[in-house]
Design a protein around this nucleic acid. Structure first.
Lengths: 326, 326
DNA sequence: CTGTTAGCGCTTTCAT
DNA sequence: ATGAAAGCGCTAACAG
């Protein structure tokens, strides 16, 4: 029924080993023999069984990808980057959503272990000791993607978030803003978001700086909260932690009778497609989302192939894209 | 180094078979023995090797998911639905992007075959003979997700697209629209989009009906084309094939000096988050994106577990969500 | 350059 | 209720 390497060997009148060799290019095979094997493969419609291969070689060419939620625009873009590079290096990805729940995040490492993945790309809001322990126990090479390891034990790919926050602040200052708000979901939820906020807060020159916590990152719930804040505080500049919160900020300002950008300027993080499709188009601190994924995967391949690695914690560049909201 | 089932057996003073039994619940094991095994597993930190399991049992508990592009909002949501249900039934998913290229779509079936996936969830714009042949050759159970098989050979999950198109038309008629445009990427690209367009075209009562083809589905490229059309035709109602095209239509209308919804009403397909975040908020034909994925995966589990299946081509319900753009 | 032979770690008869 | 043993389909020494 299923055609095996043994069938091919018989058909080509060679040994399994030789078939394996032409399949994997593990050793030189005489051209004539190679042709016979290839012919047999063709004739029988043979496909190597990756599972058997994985068992024998202890390499599955499969990468585990653990993310909070693929349906988030940012994450989906990252996953696309991961998958593209994985394909390029002939790896497959197993995708799992953690919903940012610690217990699930840890569980999933175990699951990936059972699946014998060759490596792991990991996204989480806050890396904890439990994570590192899990990685260690599973003995799987891990690359943290858009996730910081304060102690730099685990290879990672990030931008300089504090600096990005500062850049946003500097930018608003240059636009004449004095009273600035940082709109974020909730302090303590995401290390990166906090770092951005702190970078922003560190800017000197603001007359006032407040944080607006929206609880969830959802547009609908954020909008009224931001609006309330805007009605109780005179604010002329906003930095939002995500595009969605940026848009909520713009609309909240408009609802409060303010003009964007005249009365209040808004700059948001991420630069998902949303930013360019709304009016006014949003000025953003653009994050290299696709590259987060692509570079993480590339770094992981280096780890797996024992290629030399110059830098185990890669810092990607961010940049400000000026549009109409400022 | 790596703990195997054999080590556990030795530690618990039983045979591998018994360990396997308690692991899989394949047969009754005396409570006392079971405890010894569980203890040994705990003590040794044993994790079953899913690859070895897969080879021995010929079941990998892995599902291949082939989509055009995860980074598209619609698709990402579908994938989330698939993954959730997969997890629920203890399956894993291998994700692949095809970029809607036929050759790649076919290739990927072969790749999934090699990976010995137990089943396949497949999304494509236009199912062709090549696809069906590939499925057949690989002998993998397939469920088509948001993808129609005109000949109903392959199980699938869809909405009634023609009817959805008609509903959109009917809705615009009820709003007093007479001169309607269908904004889509390009005829012939997507069967479902075409079907919607045809359903719409079949509505009687319009004084005029035109199609606006935008080439790509991207906001940026669509906007000027739609605007040009709107300047050369008197249009008072638009049905857009996606939210992104819907938003492009709204902005194009505004740029052409028209008010939405007063002068021209816009209704779009999909209902991604975009629709609720823009102003005016978009009226949509809501698609059950998450459910496309969830139901497809559920159907696939039925196929895999030999559960009775009432209906091999499931039709999900769509509905109109009325907002400000009409 | 090619063949032989052990496994890889588990499931699954078949006995007992 | 438990054990023994034969594979699953392939890779990777080791010979020759």
């Amino acid at each position: 029924m299923t055609v095996t390497i043994y069938d091919v060997a018989r058909e080509a009148k060679v040994s399994m080993a030789t078939v394996s060799r032409v399949l994997n290019g593990t050793a030189v095979v005489k051209d004539e023999t190679k042709r016979r094997v290839l012919d047999a493969i063709e004739r029988l419609g043979y496909r190597p069984n990756a599972v058997a291969r994985g068992l024998a070689s202890k390499k599955t060419r499969t990468i585990g990808v653990i993310v909070p939620d693929v349906s988030a625009a940012f994450v989906a873009e990252v996953v696309r980057g991961i998958e593209d590079i994985a394909t390029m290096y002939d790896y497959h990805i197993i995708l799992k959503n953690s919903d940012a729940q610690l217990s699930r995040e840890i569980d999933l490492v175990g699951t990936m272990w059972e699946k014998q993945v060759d490596g792991l790309i990991y996204m989480t809001n806050r890396l904890q000791k439990e994570h590192v322990d899990a990685f260690e126990q599973a003995q799987i090479p891990v690359v943290l993607c858009a996730t910081e390891d304060p102690e730099r034990r685990i290879p990672s790919v990030n931008i300089d978030s504090a600096r990005a926050g500062r850049d946003a602040g500097q930018y608003l200052l240059s636009k004449g803003c004095k009273r600035v708000a940082f709109v974020t979901t909730e302090e303590g939820l995401s290390v990166l978001a906090d770092r951005r906020g702190n970078g922003l807060a560190a800017c000197t020159g603001f007359e006032q700086f407040i944080r607006i916590e929206t609880g969830s990152g959802r547009y609908e719930t954020a909008l009224p909260k931001i609006r309330a804040c805007l009605e109780n505080n005179v604010i002329d500049g906003i930095v939002a932690a995500t595009d969605e919160l940026g848009l909520a900020s713009i609309h909240a300002a408009q609802d409060a009778g303010l003009d964007v950008p005249r009365d209040v300027k808004v700059i948001a993080f991420d630069n998902t497609r949303l930013a360019t499709m709304v009016r006014p188009e949003m000025t953003v601190i653009a994050q290299p989302m696709y590259d987060f994924g692509a570079v993480s995967m590339r770094l992981l391949t280096k780890l797996l192939l024992d290629e030399p690695v110059e830098n185990y914690s890669v810092t990607l560049l961010h940049n400000i894209v000026e549009r109409q909201s400022t």
